[in-house]
Every structure is written in structure tokens, then in C-alpha cells.
Design a binder for these strands. Structure first.
Lengths: 200, 200
DNA sequence: CTTTTACTAGAACTGAATTCTAGTTACCAT
DNA sequence: ATGGTAACTAGAATTCAGTTCTAGTAAAAG
């Protein structure tokens, strides 16, 4: 009855192993520097298998990107649920971002490296994911706006205000332009983030 | 006596025409979507000529990126020289960024799309350019720090604090995730920027 | 146990990036 | 001015990575 695509039990494992291999290769040789042969042999499978699951090299890159974004978003929302106040929440976002960027630096580097030049389809999926994330964040912060702890601003402006500076710093740190580690400036950026959105 | 490379009078023009053509192609079909044939015919020259001047497709991409960064930096410093106070300067940075991103959106989109995955050489050049820019900015803002108008912070932190949020917003706007134009939120981000670096 | 089809394998194909060879012009020294 | 040198240009030829194709294999469904 169900006309959904049937997938086998082994499929998720294979897809995951390809994505793992891809991230390792990309982080070592860059996106353009790695061939699908590299990914193929790192994942221990054939070209056929890769093209069956992902359709193209770009397809792998897109899936990996989307997976990374989803994991980061989930991680952030999970962290937020342990917070009591608006201030604690805002500071947690900055802290969690730093922890993610330093612990999963391969993925962080990959996510920072590209988001344009994807297929229209992938961009649409990303836009949906982002919208959903923005809404979840907004739902989390709304009560603190209501109580007057935080400023009322256009929805799309909270993420840039809170995460923009730390993201920009991390981007430059990942590309080797800064020597001071994100941890060393975390408190400073947390202060700035809170200062930007707290009620005056 | 000089063992510098001699370049002909026509060379800069040819290089410029190739870079112009490349930006047009990249902005229309994306970096990976454009072939060097595309660039070649748009610039009206041969493959040989392109490879003589740039060495590779990646070479073109790197030169274009570096050129774009240099132009943006120059533009910013030029704008700053018309400012009297620290506050005026900080607000000018945000405003000029918005103007640049909306007027030269092809270049803005290109600069936002990639900075990692360049050759070690290009990354080093970018690092030098960025360091020089940071120092120039610091030299500009130092007097305002001295007079107590602005906070004294680690050098590398000013750019993320001031431009991070607007950059992040523009990035998302360029990739079609936001409908509200940068101009509509410029004042808000200028306030936040000034608030982040002004003396308390 | 048979049928169906997701899935895998790897050889063959295609086309874009790059290299090569043969010129052609600008610049300089005499 | 003129001959030499090296920057520069052209476009055919090559290479090699991405993709497609065909022939299977094995897991689920009936």
C-alpha cells in the first residue's frame, strides 16, 4: 500500500560511511582536491554504490553539508533546553558554538567553506531547515522577550546579533588568520551577544 | 639590474578582462559550473593566454577573490577617513558594508561563497592582506580608544564585533534566506556595533 | 521458492582542465 | 633601425576525474 521508497537495513550504514569518508577526504585535501575515487576507497565501496546513493559528487557534498547543519542545530537546541534565563541561553549559544567549532573542527571547517553554489533543490532544503531552526529558537526566546528580559526585534536578526561575531571570529581562526583560540575570546563574545539583545 | 619579472603594457588589461569575465561567469553559473572555455570566450582570448597568466582555473578564482578583498578593504579605509568620531566610524563601517554588498552583489556573493580550499600560497597572501587591514583599522581606531570613547580590546576582536552581525545577515540575504533587505536592518546593526565597542 | 528490485561492482565513456608546441609581438641593447 | 630575447598568444593534443552503463548479487515480499 505504501508507495514510499523501500530502503534496506544496510543502506543507512553505507550512506554514513560514505559521508564519513567524504568529510575526512574534504578536510584533508579540500572539496575539489578529492576525487570520488578517494571517497570510494576510503569508504570501501564501488563507484556504482556511491552513484546509486548520492547521484553525484556534488550530491555527497550537499548531503554532508545538510547533515552538518542539522547536527549543529540539534545540538544547539538541546543545549538551550538546560537553560533557565534569557541571559543563560544567549551565553550558552556562544559557548556551544565554540565547543562545536573546536571539537568538530573538520565539520566546522567544511560548513564554513561553502554554502552557495549548491543545487536549487539543496538550497531550498537548507532554507527550510534554517527557517525551522529560526522558529525553534524564536519559540525558545519568546518568553524572555515577553517578560521584558530581552529586546523585541525582527525574527531574522537574533541569530546574526548573537552568533555573528563568534562565527566570524571562528571562521578566521579556522582559516589560520588568528592565533588566539576561540576559547580565549569566548567570554568577551558572550558578553557582547547578551549586551546586543538584552532589554536596555 | 632588476631581476623582477617584466610585464608588458597590455598585460594588466588582459588580466583584468579575464577576471571580469570570470566574475560574470561565476555569478551566472557558479564556480564549478563555469568552464575555462566559458571564461576564455567571454574574455575573448585563448586557453594558452589564460594559463600563461593564471596557471589554472583555481588561480583565476584566487586572484579574483584577493582582488575583491583588497577593493573592499580600500573602500572601507577610504570611507573611514571622512569620519570624525569613533561612533561615526563604526556606523560608517556597517553602512559601507551594506552599500558594497547591495551595489556589488556579484562580488559580494563570490566573496561570501568561499575562502577555504585555496592553495597554501593564496591563503598566506590573504592572511597578510588581512593582517595589514586589521592594523590599518586599529591605527584608525586607536585614538578613539585613547580618548576613552571606545573600549580597549584584543586587536583581532574588533572586526568580528563590528561587522560580524551585518556580514552574517548579508550572507543569508545573498543566499536567499531572508526577504528583508540589508538597508532595512542597517540602523539596527549599526546600533549594535557601536554598542559593542563603545566605552561603558 | 520465486519474483522483484534495492543495491553493488567495475569497465567504458565523456568532457573539462591542463599541457605542449609552434608561433607572434613587445621591449631592449647595440 | 634591427636583431635578439622573452613575454605572450593560439589552439591542437593529452590526461584524468566525474559520470554512465551493463551485468550481476542479495535482501525483502508474496
Amino acid at each position: 500500500m505504501a508507495n514510499e521508497r523501500i530502503t534496506r537495513a544496510t543502506t543507512p550504514a553505507r550512506r554514513a560511511s560514505v559521508l564519513d569518508a567524504a568529510l575526512a577526504c574534504f578536510s584533508e585535501r579540500g572539496l575539489e582536491g578529492t576525487t570520488v575515487s578517494d571517497i570510494q576507497s576510503a569508504a570501501g565501496c564501488s563507484v556504482g554504490s556511491i552513484y546509486h546513493h548520492f547521484g553525484s559528487k556534488e550530491g555527497i557534498a550537499e548531503e554532508l553539508f545538510i547533515l552538518g547543519v542539522q547536527r549543529l542545530n540539534q545540538r544547539m537546541l538541546k543545549r538551550l533546553r538546560r537553560c533557565k534565563t534569557g541571559e543563560e541561553s544567549v551565553r550558552a549559544v556562544v559557548g556551544e558554538y565554540v565547543r562545536w567549532a573546536t571539537r568538530e573542527s573538520a565539520m566546522a571547517r567544511y560548513l564554513h567553506s561553502r554554502d552557495v553554489s549548491f543545487s536549487a533543490d539543496a538550497r531550498e532544503r537548507l532554507r527550510d531547515i534554517h527557517r525551522e531552526y529560526v522558529e525553534a529558537l524564536f519559540a525558545w526566546f519568546a518568553p524572555f522577550v515577553e517578560t521584558g528580559e530581552m529586546r523585541r526585534l525582527p525574527v531574522q536578526v537574533y541569530i546574526p546579533l548573537i552568533s555573528g561575531p563568534i562565527q566570524e571570529y571562528v571562521r578566521r581562526w579556522l582559516s589560520g588568520q588568528h592565533t588566539r583560540s576561540p576559547q580565549q575570546v569566548e567570554a568577551l563574545f558572550a558578553d557582547a551577544a547578551w549586551n546586543a539583545v538584552k532589554a536596555r
